[in-house]
Every structure is written in structure tokens, then in C-alpha cells.
């Protein structure tokens, strides 16, 4: 299942936040979206997944979601969005219950996704007992449980420290290698973008427009921290963004 954005535009209270964004998101590929703060990247992601309605343009879904997919467009949020009163297991079963998957079938799915995210020992833990990295793993496991056609990741590693981020990046690469999901990965972190993106879309500052889409040719499994071509790409992305970021930083929020 591919996604196509056609001339998306959006405004908040008369202020344009996104303008004229057209993008194609082919199946099996991770598209990273980067841009200075306030450029509307997260808004774009909410539009893609149908949590908000675009003021202009439309998001199209080409083809049907694959068999067994319970929730085609599935988010992973920056703040994890786990229910604090449910255990790890309960948080995952939450998204299965409405699909009538209970009891033995649910336990099988939960055991599978917990194994894939290395959480099998923590099934009965409550969110408050887990570190940030573990919480995000639970959120990823929950997303995997519904067998998504497209994963929409909203700054999933931004709330984590650098070491945890590095570990989770490797986990995401391993998960993608195992099952090549389609991903839209919004981040302000250029390292994450060059490590995880097949293509990187760069947005300008508000109102966010598409400045450039850059393809990264090296297979994501072969990318390592400190690869010289990735470093060069990262420097180039920073060049693209630097002026924008500087200008965005000096804007009043609601001028």
C-alpha cells in the first residue's frame, strides 16, 4: 500500500503552517521528514494518518492494506502514550480487544511482539517501572501488534538520551530488516534521518514547504555511526537547514 500526498496545505487559526506539499511514500520504504522546529512536521504526520483534516489537498491511499492488517496507519508517539494503569501486556491488548482478539489469540500476538522488541521479561510491568527507552519499545511493540501497513513515527526517540537513542535506532533497523514496513519518520535529529531514511524530505521553516527530497543509497543495515558519506550527507542537510533554523528560532511564536 502506497501513500500519496497531493498539494497538502494546512493552517492554524489563519496562520499557514504547511503549504503545497506533494510526496509519494512507496511501500517498504522509510521516509524521514526533517525541518526546523515549528515547521509543521508533526502536523504533516497527523494529516497523513487522518488525525487531522488538511485544509487543502488530500492524502491518498493507493491499493489495499495487506491481509491481516488491523490498523493500516499506526503511530508511534514521542511521549509514548502508554496507559499508566495498564501493564505492558495490557497496553498491547488494548489495541487488540476492539478487533475481537482476546484470550489465546491475543496472548500469541503479544508474546510475538514482545519477543521482537526484547520485552518478554517485562510483560507484567507497569509503565512507571520502565525506563524511557523501554516505554518506547512497548509503544513500538503495540504498533507492531496491529500489523500496520504504514508506521507513522513522530519523533519517537526525541525524549530519550543519546545512548538509548543509539540502541533503539539499531532495534528499528533490525525490525525493518525483518519485516520491511513502510515508515514516515518525523525527526529534528539529522543523525536519525541519515541512519534510518531511504529518502529524506527537508521542510522549510513555517509555513513548511518541501525544499528537497534526498535519496540515501546505502542500505540501512550497512549504515554505522561515523560513516564518512553519511557524515557528509548530514553536513549537507545541516547546510540546507541552518539558515531556516536560525530564522525560525528568532520568530515570535504567535506574532
Amino acid at each position: 500500500m502506497d501513500l500519496t500526498l497531493q498539494r497538502i496545505g494546512h493552517r492554524y487559526g489563519g496562520m499557514p503552517v504547511l503549504q503545497d506539499i506533494s510526496l509519494r511514500i512507496p511501500a517498504g520504504e522509510i521516509l524521514c521528514v526533517i525541518g526546523p522546529s515549528g515547521c509543521g512536521k508533526s502536523t504533516l504526520l497527523r494529516l497523513i494518518g487522518g488525525l487531522e483534516r488538511p485544509d487543502e489537498g488530500e492524502v491518498l491511499q493507493l491499493g489495499d492494506a495487506p491481509e491481516g492488517c488491523l490498523n493500516p496507519l499506526t503511530y508511534v508517539f514521542q511521549d509514548f502514550a502508554l496507559l499508566p494503569w495498564r501493564t505492558v501486556e495490557g497496553n498491547i491488548s488494548l489495541v487488540l480487544e476492539d478487533h475481537g482478539i482476546r484470550g489465546k489469540a491475543a496472548r500469541a500476538v503479544i508474546a510475538d511482539v514482545l519477543a521482537r522488541t526484547k520485552l518478554s521479561d517485562f510483560r507484567a510491568a507497569l509503565p512507571r517501572q520502565l525506563s524511557g527507552g523501554m516505554k518506547q519499545r512497548v509503544a513500538i511493540a503495540r504498533a507492531l501488534a496491529v500489523n500496520p501497513a504504514v508506521m507513522l513515527l513522530d519523533e519517537p526517540l526525541s525524549a530519550l538520551d543519546a545512548q538509548t537513542r543509539e540502541l533503539l535506532m539499531e532495534d528499528l533497523v533490525a525490525l525493518w530488516e525483518r519485516q520491511r514496513f513502510t515508515g514516515v519518520y518525523v525527526t529534528h535529529n539529522l543523525t536519525e534521518a541519515v541512519r534510518l531514511g531511504h529518502r529524506i524530505a527537508v521542510l522549510s521553516r513555517r509555513p513548511g514547504r518541501l525544499r528537497e527530497v534526498i535519496a540515501v543509497n546505502r542500505p540501512i543495515a550497512d549504515r554505522r555511526a561515523g560513516d564518512s558519506d553519511l557524515d557528509a550527507l548530514q553536513a549537507r542537510l545541516w547546510d540546507l537547514m541552518k539558515q531556516e533554523a536560525l530564522a525560525a528560532d528568532q520568530e515570535l511564536l504567535d506574532a
Binding site: G49, L51, L70, N71, A81, D98, R142, V146
Partner: peptide, 10 residues
């Protein structure tokens, strides 16, 4: 954000 999460999972 929890409500939004619930909606995003349908």
C-alpha cells in the same frame, strides 16, 4: 495524547 492514541489505533 492518550485519547489521540486511542483514536489513532481505531
Amino acid at each position: 495524547s492518550l485519547v489521540r492514541m486511542g483514536q489513532s489505533f481505531g
